[in-house]
């Protein structure tokens, strides 16, 4: 099943500043959308707006050609959000954290053990997240993303806190995801080279 994410004439004003105006794009299954720009230009605001967390001044985001405001639950059921603030609880263990997520979303057909192994967090399963490093916590949030098993990935600065190996892994995961017909929206301030049909949006 193919999906389509598109946006028409997005405008966002924060305070007195117009962050972007008349921004449009379309993303098909298998595609990667990279939002680029320097620090503080509104990348995060844009990606949050597309995901439905910010109210836009103008414009509409469409998921499968239906405005997302009319089908918020379907849209949110098809996306997973990964950002600097991981949304994982420091007092809970990896398994407890991901178990909570599993009660909210459909179960994936992936084997969790394989995912943990691949992300290098298999031996951290019984530790509370607070005792892990920032990079390791990032890997746990990647595990949540893989296990959610949804077509649309939202990644806000996915490379923060990760080592070289971790960054390569993220790119590999995105490539695989796109190759399988998924799609990914990514906000990044670094140059990202991923072998997938890429659309770039530059924010001034």
């Amino acid at each position: 099943m193919t999906h389509k994410l598109s946006a028409d004439n997005l405008t966002l004003i924060r305070g007195e500043r117009c962050l972007f105006q008349g921004l449009s794009f379309a993303l098909e299954s298998g595609g990667l959308l990279i939002l680029e720009g320097r620090n503080g230009c509104g990348k995060t605001s844009l990606i949050r707006a597309i995901a439905g967390m910010l109210t836009l001044e103008e414009g509409t985001v469409f998921w499968d050609d239906v405005p997302v405001d009319d089908q918020r639950q379907t849209f949110h059921g098809d996306l997973v959000w990964l950002a600097h603030r991981t949304g994982l609880k420091g007092d809970l263990t990896l398994v407890e954290n991901l178990g909570f997520e599993r009660s909210l979303r459909a179960h994936s057909s992936r084997d969790p053990e394989e995912v943990y192994e691949r992300l290098g967090i298999a031996r951290l399963k019984k530790l509370v997240l607070r005792s892990l490093s920032a990079g390791q916590q990032r890997r746990v949030s990647l595990a949540r993303m893989l296990l959610a098993d949804v077509p649309l990935w939202f990644m806000d600065e996915p490379f923060t806190n990760l080592d070289r190996e971790g960054r390569a892994l993220v790119m590999e995961l995105v490539e695989e995801h796109c190759a399988k017909g998924g799609m990914c929206v990514m906000a990044a301030h670094q140059d990202v080279e991923i072998a997938a049909p890429t659309t770039r949006v530059k924010i001034q």
Binding site: M1, G77, F100, S103, L104, R105, A106, S109, R110, D111, E114, V115, R118, D149, V150, P151, K180, G181, G182
Partner: peptide
């Protein structure tokens, strides 16, 4: 990792009572 893994077209999310109980 299962290379043949594909993204399922239709998935059934857990009901609201599951969400309520989990939170």
């Amino acid at each position: 990792m299962n290379e043949n893994h594909t993204i399922e077209a239709q998935r059934e999310n857990p009901g609201i009572f599951s969400g309520l109980a989990a939170t």
